[in-house]
């Protein structure tokens, strides 16, 4: 994993700036334009969620509403009043959170151990297994969704089944594998000489020094599971086990004359935990994505 520091600057531009006190106005202008383009849909989502249904889909005026209201949020909470009949907002949150928790925590444990064993332990078939992992990385989930559906149909409408296929992840194993491979082995050797066994070495020496890898895997798998749509769509038909994405997707697909204000409000509810998490741990998010580039 390369050390990617966020405050980015190669020394060349800095030197030039010092010489001429050069302010790159052109760059700032371009950045401003692209920011508006990238930010606008998000702005629309947030503002729209506070507008009356008539305003949300009303040409450009939707972007500059005359007044804001909580009506959409209120109406959502009215609509999803019962966990069994319509599902409840709280219920959707609970399911999404539980599923994410199982996948992220479970995944970190099993995949890091597997990655570590692949990187450090000697056993027969290690190379074959590694090849298998690399090949499995590229198989799209959609390609195995249907057979999985048959295999797990007995578990439909449970929370566990929504998480189960994603805990073990060839991709995460591969990420951990490359990270551990690049970790100097002397630390472990020192620990062995100090008298630590393999498990203790892993827990007390490797784990604390592999935080970047764990953060990467946690974040990437969190983004993936929190957004997952196809699998819960196949495996759930009862509102009490809907995750947020399904609840909102249903709303989107059911209404022939969509009430965007309401859906936007729902969308905000869906994205706020994720976005807040991102803004707080931005460094780690960006680092975890950046760390992907080091493989290849």
């Amino acid at each position: 994993m390369s050390t990617v520091s966020l405050p980015a600057s190669s020394s060349a531009p800095r030197r030039r700036r010092r010489r001429r006190r050069h302010v790159p106005w052109g760059v700032y202008a371009l950045l401003a334009i692209f920011s508006v383009l990238f930010l606008f849909p998000i702005y629309y989502l947030v503002v729209g969620s506070f507008e009356t249904p008539a305003d949300t889909l009303n040409g450009l005026r939707a972007a500059a509403p005359s007044h804001l209201t909580f009506a959409n949020y209120h109406s959502l909470s009215q609509q999803f009043f019962s966990s069994t009949i319509t599902g409840s907002l709280q219920g959707f949150y609970t399911v999404s959170t539980l599923v994410s928790l199982i996948v992220v925590v479970g995944g970190m444990i099993v995949n890091s151990l597997a990655g570590y064993a692949l990187a450090r332990m000697k056993f027969r078939g290690r190379k074959t297994l590694l090849l298998l992992i690399i090949v499995l990385v590229i198989i799209p989930f959609q390609a195995i969704a249907v057979p999985l559906y048959y295999m797990l149909s007995g578990l439909r409408n449970t929370v566990v089944v929504q998480a189960l296929p994603f805990i073990g992840s060839a991709f995460s194993v591969y990420l951990f594998y490359t990270f551990f491979l690049n970790l100097p082995p002397q630390l472990e050797e020192a620990a062995r000489i100090d008298g630590a066994g393999p498990w203790r070495t892993f827990l007390q020496i490797i784990l604390p020094n592999a935080k970047p890898a764990f953060a990467s895997v946690a974040i990437l798998s969190f983004i993936q599971i929190w957004s997952s749509y196809l699998w819960p769509l196949m495996m759930t038909s009862q509102p009490n086990v809907y995750p947020l994405s399904i609840a909102i997707g249903n709303l989107l697909k059911q209404q022939s004359t969509p009430n965007y204000g309401e859906m936007f409000a729902f969308g905000v509810l869906l994205v706020v935990p994720m976005a807040a998490f991102f803004l707080v741990f931005q460094r780690w998010f960006i680092r975890s994505v950046a760390s992907l580039a080091v493989k290849g």
């Binding site: 950045l31 692209f34 920011s35 990238f38 930010l39 849909p41 998000i42 629309y44 989502l45 729209g48 949300t56 889909l57 983004i223 929190w226 957004s227 749509y229 994405s245 909102i248 997707g249 989107l252 969509p258 965007y260 859906m263 936007f264 969308g267 869906l270 994205v271 994720m274 976005a275 998490f277 991102f278 803004l279 931005q282 998010f285 960006i286 994505v289």
Partner: peptide
């Protein structure tokens, strides 16, 4: 700020992206 802005859509689930763009 711009860096954050450009990256922000990545954390948007596809369901939500679809929803916003359906309105746009």
């Amino acid at each position: 700020f711009c860096r954050t802005t450009f990256f922000l859509p990545v954390v948007f689930p596809m369901v939500l992206t679809s929803l916003i763009w359906k309105a746009i």
